[in-house]
């Protein structure tokens, strides 16, 4: 059951990238970002209402803590611009390469609250194999 749910997770992200890319083609990139985040926010509000959950915002939260959504806008922007040109599968593979590289750096230096973990040769080899795979996808 859990594997089925995890499968749905993966499929949802790919479908989301495709739909967002198609929306961007119709409305333009920047308006599509507004629509994407608006529908996402409305869905969150709906879930909160159904689950009778309340927002709990304490005082003294650093401003930086609010920047996740701003960075998320960049993620969405990069995805909608590139998905129609490289496709969802290549976007996923390239994104994975970026995720791995940044994760390794954050972990190696213990940045942004990441648990410090020195980069291993195995991780470097894994990243290199991913890069080779991406190269084959574009060959």
């Amino acid at each position: 059951m859990e594997i089925l749910l995890a499968t749905i997770c993966g499929m949802t992200v790919s479908l989301m990238n495709i739909l967002n890319g198609k929306l961007s083609a119709v409305t333009g990139t920047f308006l599509s970002l507004v629509v994407i985040h608006l529908t996402g926010l409305l869905a969150v509000i709906l879930v909160l209402m159904v689950r009778h959950e309340k927002l709990t915002i304490k005082s003294g939260i650093p401003i930086l803590a609010y920047s996740g959504g701003v960075i998320g806008v960049l993620t969405t922007l990069f995805s909608v611009v590139s998905v129609s040109k490289v496709g969802a599968a290549s976007l996923t593979a390239l994104s994975l390469g970026g995720q791995m590289a940044v994760s390794f750096i954050l972990e190696h230096y213990g940045l942004l609250g990441a648990k410090q973990q020195r980069i291993s040769l195995q991780k470097i080899i894994g990243l290199c194999v991913v890069i080779v795979g991406i190269g084959v996808m574009f060959a």
């Binding site: 920047s67 996740g68 960075i71 998320g72 960049l74 993620t75 990069f78 995720q99 994760s103």
Partner: peptide, 15 residues
């Protein structure tokens, strides 16, 4: 941009 989308995913997740 695709590679950068992965970078920003990790950064936003951490934040």
């Amino acid at each position: 941009l695709s590679i950068l989308s992965g970078a920003t995913i990790v950064l936003s997740r951490q934040v």
